[in-house]
Amino acid sequence: MYDMKHLNKLGDLGKNAEIAMKAFQEFDKVALEDGAIPKKYKELIAIAVALTTQCPYCLEIHEKKAEDAGATKEELAEVTFISAALRAGAAVVHGTHIM
């Protein structure tokens, strides 16, 4: 099901919803460019979110962009455990609803 080749179909998606696709692409570009938060940190945040949502496409895309922006393997490893801690923490605190 998850094959990076599916991303080749983004053009078809865009042809069928051109205005929305262009707006999304511009929003995505602006959201991830350097700003108050440097690009490297934005890419690390994107990886943390992708690990949490478990999106293999985002993981592959943002891992490359994070490394290109200067992220180290150590930073990628820490991001992994931050994501794991937040996911586990959410399960624990949601457990209060069943107490």
Rank of each mutant, 00 (worst) to 15 (best):
M1W: 05
M1E: 14
Y2H: 10
Y2Q: 11
Y2A: 14
D3H: 08
D3V: 04
M4F: 15
M4K: 15
K5H: 15
K5Q: 15
K5D: 15
K5L: 14
H6I: 13
L7P: 06
N8S: 15
K9Y: 11
K9V: 01
K9M: 09
L10K: 03
D12I: 00
N16P: 02
N16Y: 03
A17N: 05
A17W: 00
A17S: 08
E18G: 10
M21P: 05
K22L: 07
K22S: 11
K22W: 04
E26P: 05
E26T: 14
E26W: 00
D28T: 01
V30P: 01
A31Q: 05
A31L: 07
A31V: 09
A31Y: 05
A31D: 02
A31W: 01
L32M: 10
L32C: 01
L32E: 02
D34I: 07
A36R: 01
A36F: 00
I37V: 15
P38C: 14
P38S: 14
K40H: 12
Y41S: 07
Y41A: 06
K42E: 00
K42D: 00
E43T: 06
L44A: 12
L44H: 11
L44Y: 12
A46D: 05
I47W: 01
A48W: 04
A50L: 12
L51K: 08
L51C: 08
T52D: 08
T52Q: 08
T52M: 09
T53W: 04
Q54S: 07
C55H: 08
Y57K: 11
Y57I: 07
C58F: 05
I61V: 13
H62E: 10
H62D: 11
E63P: 04
E63S: 15
K64C: 04
K65M: 07
A66G: 06
E67N: 01
D68T: 04
D68C: 00
G70I: 06
G70P: 04
A71K: 01
T72D: 11
K73V: 11
E74N: 12
E74S: 12
E74W: 03
E75Q: 15
L76E: 02
L76R: 00
L76P: 01
A77G: 05
E78L: 03
T80W: 03
F81M: 02
F81G: 01
F81Q: 01
I82M: 15
S83I: 03
A85L: 12
L86A: 10
A88L: 13
G89K: 08
A90Y: 07
A90N: 13
A91V: 13
A91R: 13
V93R: 02
V93T: 06
G95W: 10
G95Y: 11
G95I: 10
T96I: 11
H97S: 09
H97W: 11
I98T: 03
I98Y: 07
